[in-house]
Nucleic acid binder design. Sequence first.
DNA 1: AACTCGAACTTGTCTGTACAGGCTACCGTC
DNA 2: GACGGTAGCCTGTACAGACAAGTTCGAGTT
Lengths: 245, 245
Amino acid sequence: MTRRHQQIADDLRSAIADGRYPVGSALPSDAELAAAYDASRGTVRQAVSALLAEGMIGSRQGARRTVLTTTPSQSFTELRSFAQWAASGGHAAGGLVLESAWEAAGGDTAARLQVPTGARVFRVLRVRTLDGDPVLLERAVYAGWIGSAVERLPPDCVSVTRRLNEDTGLVFTHGEHHIDALAAGTLEARHLELRRGSPLLRVRRTTTAQDGRPVETSDDRYRPGSVAFTVRNSLQANSLTRTEG
Amino acid sequence: MTRRHQQIADDLRSAIADGRYPVGSALPSDAELAAAYDASRGTVRQAVSALLAEGMIGSRQGARRTVLTTTPSQSFTELRSFAQWAASGGHAAGGLVLESAWEAAGGDTAARLQVPTGARVFRVLRVRTLDGDPVLLERAVYAGWIGSAVERLPPDCVSVTRRLNEDTGLVFTHGEHHIDALAAGTLEARHLELRRGSPLLRVRRTTTAQDGRPVETSDDRYRPGSVAFTVRNSLQANSLTRTEG
DNA sequence: AACTCGAACTTGTCTGTACAGGCTACCGTC
DNA sequence: GACGGTAGCCTGTACAGACAAGTTCGAGTT
């Protein structure tokens, strides 16, 4: 049983994607939508506010809401999982673990995972490929309580996220992504098949489980031209922050 | 007269920032907050959902909400305006227009600004400095209806956003940011004081006014190490998208 | 023809109520 | 002491009504 407001939101999203409401056009009013879906205005507003937060529509008091873009954001799951993202774009994802080991968490890592310095954590160095081409070198560190589940995964496991969810019921619910650029070192040059000094896109991320415990922190280095990130935001919902390097 | 739900949200934000609710601790329940602020549960939930969307707190049905992080996101205005961002971090921002001209919009630019190909647009090449050091080369293109206001600004105008707001009442409400990495060319090398081929962080963004009309589209190239971007997201609110390069 | 004013409409805000479904802590049993 | 079940709490969802504040458009006036 899907929720009423979610049904309405999904329906509006696909209506916009289909072009029934082109970019720049006005959406029906709360009252019209409530009548059309036979729901209360509160429920309709809950659905609409989801699209608002995604930046798909704009809204000002008094004026009808207008469509801003037809391409919806990916779901969080799709973002978190390299494999699921690739699959949704019709590409084949691959992965290979180059190194993995238990070790004591250093200061930075410990802080990001919210564990004491020196706590046992599981470190993994992984190459990710898209249609056979290496595009991403991933240095991930998993918290101790999930590390052994990661250790049991096959080294060429395509979707780590999916397997962890199947094996342990783990669901990622929050993430923080820190994005900057840097030059490729020897290691990146070798595994991503480019020259030392080439520009790389670096994403340092920390992912958190339902209960707020950090699960994983990672330093991902992308080959330029292969992958980019898009953030859509608004006055109402802003998740992007500029920080000092 | 600020809104009730916004007051409550602000109060909760500062309570979290102050450490009254440390990371990992539980927030009071809807009922308790409603009693404390003398508001209905609906209003409290509206306030709490703002923090939820910002990723400051986590929530699951049945369990109390927990604090995920104490550092709030910047407001959208602060993100949009380089000068206001710098000021909030205690730095001095500067800017200098190197070139500017009216020209006909090319295909890409026209599409991003949602104007016909060949429409008159105003292009500006600007260097931005932080505490005197050049950190950002900005290639911005403004839509025709706002271009003349931009043209009237002094070339060393520090906060373009603020001046446009004062002069024309313009408010930026939505933005789309596309982030990747690339190597510095001759122009970037000269103005950002680095070598050709050095890695740069590129942010291509399009900003939209209240009524949904695109105002500005820009290609910003940041010197690495000076500025980074952070995105915080969750199952409930996700604005980050991974795209093909 | 240009301008002003107002009525109708639309979104934003707030309250109150009700029920469903997940979570926790306590209590009694084995 | 370990285990299981349940009552009470808490969040999610949904509905109905009311007013505030901003927008739009047309009628009437200048």
